[in-house]
Amino acid sequence: MRPTDPRFTGIGLGLRAPLAEAIVHRAPPSLRWLEVSPENHVNRGGSFVRMLHEARAKFPLVTHGLTMCPGSTDPLDRAYLTDLAAFVRAVEAPWHSDHLCFGHRDGVFLHDLLPIPFTRDAAAHTAARVREAMAALPVPFALENLSWYAHPGEAELDEAAFIRAVLDASGAWLMLDVNNVYVNARNHGFDAREFIDALPLDRVVQMHVAGHLVAEHGFRIDTHGEPVCDDVYDLLHYALRRTGPVPVLLERDHNPPPWEALVDELDRLDAIWRDATGVTP
C-alpha cells in the first residue's frame, strides 16, 4: 500500500529562505504543506533554525534530500544518514525522497544531479544502496526521476524501465517530477504521456512541478527558476488522473517572483488537483 498521510493533500511549496516570510505570514488557503531539504538545516544554527521553527508551527513538513546520490559508487556516508534520520524524525516527515542520480565521486561533491547509465548493473547497484539507506531511515523512502541532458554510453533499458527496475529491486516509492518528464520528453523527443503510462504509478507518493528555462534551439534546462509552463500544468492533470490524489509540490528555488505570482501558481495547481482527482483537499 502506498504510504499516505492526511496532512499531505493538495498542494505544497518548497521552503526557501527568500520565500519564508511570505509563506509564514501570507500563505493562501491553497498552500497546505511544505517541503524542506535536510541539507539546508542539519547541524546548523541561526536564521535557518528560526525559519524552520516558524514554518513548522504553521505547516506540516515533508523532507526532500539533495545529496544522498543513491547512484554514486562512493560508499554511503553513515554520519549523513544518521543526521538525516534524526532530522526526518524531528520534523515528523511522512516520507523522505531524493534523486535517482549521482553527485559525488571519490568524496568530491559536484553539487549537481548527474545522470547514471540506464543499465542493469547500475540499477542493481543503485537499488542496493537505496535498500541500505532505507534501513537507516525511520520513514518510507521515494526516488525522484531526473531531468537529464545526455546519457553516458549506451543504454540497456529505457528510462521508465530503468526506474521500474530500481524501484522493484529496492522497494522504494516514486517521487514523480512532472516537469522533469516534460523537459526530458522535449529534449530527447519522446511522448511525455506515454512515459508516464510506462511508470509504476501505484508507487507514486508525491509529485513535483517546477518551471524550466527554454535555451537555444528550444533546449530545456531544469532551473526551478521560471514559472510553470502550460504544458506542464496539462501533464500534471494527466498524471493526477492516473495516480489519484497524491500531494503535489511546487519547486521554486531560484529567481523568486513577487509573492502574488507564486500564489497564482499555487491556486492554479490547486484547481487542477481538485479537478483531476475529484477530491477536496
Partner: peptide
C-alpha cells in the same frame, strides 16, 4: 558504459581546467 567509468569521466569533465576530448568521446552522444 560502466557506472564507475561514467562517474569518474563525468566528474573529471566537470572539474578539469580544460575538458578532455577523450572524456567527451567516452561519454558519447552530443
Amino acid at each position: 558504459m560502466k557506472l564507475d567509468a561514467a562517474q569518474s569521466t563525468l566528474a573529471r569533465l566537470c572539474l578539469d581546467r580544460t575538458p578532455r576530448d577523450e572524456d567527451l568521446t567516452a561519454l558519447g552522444g552530443d
